[in-house]
């Protein structure tokens, strides 16, 4: 039993190294930002644990500084996080049969954990459930510890890390490229890029994600027959 977990951990850890770099950088920046706004380190730490979604946590900081608006908070949060609905649909099959780990896997499904768990071809002999569990857990540890450290240090640290956040972009480019090179048809990839770019140009960076998701769903639905034919699916 012990070796099964260790094997999965050994397989999961290298996949999370870029996320460690990115999450520490972003998490520490987030903690510092909260501290300079006057919050104790407990705020970024607890928010990192409970919300565990980078972009919303930054927005939540400004919500905390504004007037109390529960309904607006709920709606804005749901809209910022709506892309996770897609992740769930994509992971319905993969998370099947993971037992007690499943609720944790769903709770900890941030962009990065989803991308790794969804795109990695887990080698034979490595337990799928434990692999995905460790990917999610390690990523969460990186993020929470980063937010806590940033909150404790405040603005004491000054480091020339401008541009380090690009590590996340680079990771998503690699994941996209890997999936692009592997797939039998590129319709879905092109839809993803095309719909996002067009919606970004039309709606702007603040509010393009929901229209993008609608466009992707509509376009994938319209091209279902073509995609399934080229994939050679029996359905």
């Amino acid at each position: 039993m012990e070796s099964k977990k260790l094997k999965a951990l050994k397989c999961a850890f290298p996949k999370t190294v870029p996320i460690f770099a990115g999450f520490w950088f972003l998490g520490i920046s987030y903690g510092i930002m909260m501290r300079t706004q006057g919050f104790s380190f407990l705020y970024p730490t607890l928010m990192a644990i409970t919300i565990f979604g980078g972009s919303l946590e930054f927005v939540a900081a400004s919500m905390l500084l504004g007037a109390f608006a529960p309904l607006q908070t709920l709606l804005v949060s749901f809209m910022i996080q709506a892309r996770h609905l897609f992740y769930g649909i994509a992971m319905l099959e993969k998370y099947k049969g993971t037992g007690w780990k499943k609720p944790y896997l769903i709770y900890a499904m941030c962009d990065e954990s989803f991308s790794i768990n969804c795109s990695t071809e887990i080698p034979p002999g490595v337990d799928k459930g434990w692999f995905m569990f460790f990917v999610s857990l390690l990523n969460q540890i990186y993020w929470v510890s980063g937010a806590m450290i940033g909150g404790l240090l405040g603005s004491l640290v000054k480091f020339d890390t401008e541009g380090l956040s690009f590590v996340m972009t680079a990771m998503f480019v690699v994941i996209f490229l890997d999936s692009f090179l592997k797939e039998k048809q590129h319709i879905s990839s092109f839809i993803g890029i095309g719909a996002s770019v067009i919606c970004l140009l039309i709606f702007g960076s603040e509010s393009f994600m929901i229209p993008t998701m609608v466009c992707i769903t509509v376009l994938l639905t319209l091209s279902r027959r073509q995609i399934e034919k080229r994939e050679g699916d029996e359905t």
Partner: peptide, 18 residues
């Protein structure tokens, strides 16, 4: 099920743009 299979590559593209 179809969306679950077709979505990942679209999502990866979306995340790059995001």
């Amino acid at each position: 099920q179809y969306l679950g299979r077709a979505l990942p590559s679209a999502i990866f593209g979306m995340l790059v743009i995001y």
